[in-house]
Design a protein around this nucleic acid. Structure first.
Lengths: 187, 187, 187, 187
DNA sequence: TATGAATGAGCATTCATTCAT
DNA sequence: AATGAATGAATGCTCATTCAT
């Protein structure tokens, strides 16, 4: 494991525990056991570490969501997408907390956020296509994406608040609510 | 306006702009034009300023959501509740940041958090009643609350990301999506 | 009990626990429950509180040592003086610690030390008289006083290190050693 | 001379002049000409500077008292021991202040204190042996040690109070008083 | 590639003291 | 006699970053 990778991993863990601003470079240096100068050899500054981490995780999101989608049935596709994201967050709490904090924090410049948005292209495409098929109503795409993502996040938080004891029934209910909200006509 | 009030107001403004951790005491001191020691005469430490602000803001919280609800029409009630919360967050960015970022962090003692969470009670009653009237499907109450709350939050985030330029059309779409998700039968 | 007296008593206790420099005015204010300005009404500054305490305690020393001296026998007088001081310190640990810290600290200006020295006049007189009677050798008076005082202090420290379990035999040995050191001829 | 050594040396000098608590870090920084952060690069905090100094000085301590003792004559041995300790303290005011002021305070961990107290061992042996030779009376060893040590300390204090102008005659008197106190028979 | 000494601005907080009431 | 708001210099310490090796 390269020093650079160690720094990235350590930073991710520290940020997960303490938040971004609470995580100082000196802490990263001490925890990772990497020398002061070594860190600066690999990264221009603190911001660059955060940015790099953010991009890594964003890319992950993009691939995860569209994994194992069934071919035809849009509703099933939607459910799988939903679950993909949900279980990714549940199984990678680091990534979840990180993405939550990142989303709000002014630490991430807009340019970076937009850059990350490219990985959501596929999700976006799904919504457009489903609207084209007249299954979803022609809502604003951004609104749809945001609500879809937000619903998953809400459930993950509920899952965490319940200490991991969230019944599958609840998850299915949430997926159903999510889905119904976007529909053009009632089923 | 007392020096104490000036400090609170200044802190409120700075935190709204920059976030909590990014707002240093020296910044508060310089901006408010109050002396170093004066601040510490009124507050034990930085945390106490935050707590006091949090308490002030939390007082509104409980009443905001259920304010000015129309009598009969459930759908209109839902829309007003949704907007109440949305515009409250939009107009009180600090309250939003607190509820999103801080309420979940260990920076605020649990006692304070619980106090702020009381507004859930009224919302809960609304959902139960609407289920009883067979307008909403009998989903898990917690799931419904969480998704309702999450949807508002999602839109506020979108609103913020767009620098306040979110069309009213989008907000109405979000309310519609939110509402439709919970319905028992299609309208 | 006047506010002034409260401040003095509180200061003495705090200094006893923590030392002089570790005891701040704000601590004295908080602990004594006296207002900021009240303290400054009675004392010009921190130094004046210390000085006043020091003089009070010094006066105490002076009277204590010469208390209940038997008339004729010099050796017995010496033993009583020794014990007077010893038990005063043992029963007033505050005064002991305070006098120990004061003696060394540059916080007490030389003028104050000299002022306090007047109370030792009687002790000084005792040594002079005993030298005149050719019982004590004509050592430097200051040296004698310092060693006398130091011997008592040494035993008090031993007493404290032993948690108060110092046999009377040891005390008597110390008095004997002290006495013999000053003698002109062997007994 | 390394920056670290400069800091230690400067601290040593400042503390000797002013005492520990009166010596601030900023003073050390200004006097030593070392940058703020540099100091903290080498030492964890203020306490660590003190500890490191204490350890350095304690190394001498054990060997000093019993240094250069003449072979046969017990009285001369005693005088040399006395002077060794006296001049060590006089020439190493910091060592004296530490042993007097700090060794008893909670600022130094017990482990360090014990390390410094080892020099008692040799003195103890000397007293036992001299009692065995029937030159000293069979007083409690602890009492003897404490009084011996206390006498030296008393004279050092006197020396300091006189600003270093203590006549050699006084020192010799003190040694004589010390010695006579312990004797079995008059000389 | 890797190290760690060096920097000084900045941090939250405490201090002794003044002053108007 | 008593209060407590107000002050700003000072304290111990952390920070992100630079640079010579």
């Amino acid at each position: 494991m390269s020093k650079k990778a160690i720094v990235l991993q350590t930073t991710l863990e520290l940020i997960t525990k303490q938040g971004i601003r609470a995580t100082s470079l000196s802490q990263i240096i001490k925890t990772s056991g990497v020398a002061n100068g070594t860190l600066y050899h690999h990264f221009k500054n603190k911001e660059e570490i955060i940015s790099e981490l953010y991009l890594m995780l964003s890319q992950d999101f993009g691939t995860v969501v569209m994994r194992n989608l069934p071919e035809e049935d849009t509703k099933k596709q939607f459910a799988i997408m939903w679950q993909n994201l949900f279980y990714y967050f549940v199984n990678n709490p680091l990534a979840f907390i990180f993405s939550e904090q990142i989303a709000r924090s002014p630490e991430i410049p807009t340019s970076l956020k937009n850059q990350a948005r490219q990985y959501y292209k596929d999700i976006e495409a799904f919504f457009r296509e489903t609207i084209r098929k007249k299954e979803f109503k022609a809502y604003d795409i951004l609104v749809m994406e945001e609500l879809f993502f937000g619903n998953v996040v809400s459930l993950v938080k509920l899952y965490e608040n319940k200490g991991g004891n969230l019944k599958e029934r609840c998850i299915n209910q949430a997926i159903e609510i999510s889905w119904k909200g976007f529909l053009k006509k009632a089923e």
